[in-house]
Design a protein around this nucleic acid. Structure first.
Lengths: 343, 343
DNA sequence: CTGTTAGCGCGTTCAT
DNA sequence: ATGAACGCGCTAACAG
């Protein structure tokens, strides 16, 4: 096994030898686990400096059973949604000696499971799952190895906590907002098929419609994929179908971005010809052209809450988790009352 | 130390006991490091299944000195640029048993160094640095502990490899493209101050100007920050200054996104009133409104190349690294000839 | 206060 | 072909 030449990192023994003490004494000083004579402490600290000593976290794990690492299962490293949550996770980890180990599942159950296993093999102290397709059964099984906090599920056991927003309500709110603006022909671009959040939002859409005495029209509902391309293709399809619509509820903000461009290419203006409302309120939605009207959900805050909850599970302590803000409509420039539409 | 109740993971000893063999035999089967009787192999494999055994990578490290983990220093988890490179990194790692451990430096040298240390403390086998502010000196020091591959530097040692694109050329190309379109009053929104890529691109901008006999006008150069907000604020400032300009070279695509919105709010149309060219060609630039004309650099491909280079360093093998594509101009909808401007 | 000993999970001699 | 013993870096229990 030819290992490349490399400064071998100093160990407690190297420090001990250099300082003329035993390894235990070094350890004691490192952890403050017992009183040590001042002169020895100085000698040891000196050696630590000189040899540039850093504890070997891998070896430490063997003793303590703690890797000081938290696994994070995300879907795509380039998903702005997941990354907003990741920002929250990072923020909550600030200065906390735990580091995140990130793995991507690509919305593929098999791959997600493989990545979860990878995280567990690396003996992470806990796992945060940013939604995904892992089923509840698998979740419970994995939780026997390591505590888990997840979004997109709704269970609570000794070792599993979940966060979920009321997607149905959000879908309802978005559609309701459009209805209140006077729109009657409201299309919906659905999220990923089989994805629970997507399905719930669609339910909310439908519910708002019928509660206003408007019939749910399947022809106004087209498939997207929670990404720009899906929104883009969906509007093209919608326009091509000849169906009339004056507003669209997009399953998420990214879908909206794509839809804006698609509409433009069809000669339709946003919001003059078509009103658009999204879901998420990603940071970028302030800068999109035009800036998005959307349903705000506390993504960043959820990231923070997940970390705190997980640390509570790991360290077996009660932690007060800040209550998450409710869903709300953020009004920007992609919506306008129906009465002003057309001319 | 109250550890939460948890299925203790099975060890080689558990397997050995269950299969009625010794731990060494289990190890041999695990690694195929020696012939083992067929019946014992079966018994062991059976036990592995039953006990759901997974090797402890932490313990393994102690023996092998390999953590099978690659550290990645990025700047922001929500930077679409870094994430595009990360996608390449992930792609290259597909099925390779190495996993990435990601840390963010937030464009802050001190924090970057702290994160590098964190990665080294976790005994990563190698480190990939996606640009940043770490200076060359620090880079060389860290490389004594672990091989490093970085972008944004330009050195090559036994244990450090770097990738860098010709930012100056890119800046030149972008500006040249605008000039060829007939533009003469070309503004530039600079990237992050003190950031080398940003400085080089600005040099290229200047060089293109003078090579066309146009005087470099500092009033047409405003500070951005490589993000949307910077582009947005910069154009506002530019317009407020009263300076005339018919085109802008933005230091990167994100700057462009912000600039588009800022211009619109000032009543300026893109590209009819102002042409815009970016730098990067992020995936989203296909979907921005309007889609961006930009300088394409091989971000994703660089991610792949960095991994391969690093693995070469780690495993001390020669690997053929695919040559990276050259910079190129991708023409989309934010630019048009000057002659057609105004009316 | 401090050094010695043992063991965390594993792979690798060294014997057998 | 296989088991026993050792050591990777570290801390905790046990002497002193």
């Amino acid at each position: 096994m030819s290992k490349p030449a490399q400064d071998k990192q100093a160990t407690v023994y190297d420090i001990a030898r250099a300082a003329g003490v035993s390894a235990s004494t070094v350890s004691r000083i490192l952890n403050g686990s017992a009183k040590v004579a001042e002169d020895k402490r100085l000698a040891v600290e000196d050696a630590i400096q000189k040899l540039n000593y850093r504890p070997n976290l891998m070896a430490l794990y063997l003793k303590t059973g703690q890797s000081m690492t938290l696994g994070v299962l995300t879907q795509y490293v380039d998903s702005p949604f997941s990354n907003e949550m990741l920002r929250g996770v990072e923020h909550a980890l600030q200065g906390l000696k735990y580091a995140p180990l990130i793995a991507s599942g690509h919305w593929n159950e098999e791959e997600e499971i493989e990545r979860l296993r990878l995280l567990i093999d690396r003996r992470v102290d806990g796992i945060i799952i940013l939604t995904g397709h892992v089923n509840q059964q698998a979740l419970l099984e994995f939780s026997q190895q390591v505590p888990i906090v997840a979004t997109g599920h709704n269970i609570k056991t000794e070792r599993v906590r979940t966060f979920s927003i009321n997607n149905r309500l959000g879908g309802y709110m978005a559609t309701r907002y459009l209805l209140d603006l006077g729109h009657r022909q409201i299309a919906h671009i659905v999220g990923l098929p089989d994805q629970n959040d997507a399905i719930e939002r669609q339910h909310g859409y439908r519910q708002a419609l019928v509660s206003s005495g408007i019939e749910y029209d399947p022809e106004l509902v087209v498939q997207g994929d929670f990404a720009e391309a899906g929104g883009f293709n969906a509007v093209k399809q919608l326009v091509a179908s000849g169906k009339k619509f004056t507003a669209i509820f997009c399953a998420n903000d990214q879908t909206c971005y794509g839809a804006i461009l698609g509409l433009k290419q069809c000669g339709l203006r946003v919001p003059e010809d078509v009103s658009l409302i999204g879901f998420d309120d990603l940071p970028f939605s302030t800068f999109s052209n035009p800036p998005l009207t959307t349903v705000r959900q506390p993504i960043y805050e959820t990231g923070i809450a997940m970390v705190n909850t997980l640390l509570g599970l790991i360290e077996n302590t009660e932690r007060t988790i800040d209550e998450l803000p409710e869903l709300s409509i953020v009004v920007r420039d992609t919506t306008m009352p129906y009465v002003f539409n057309k001319d």
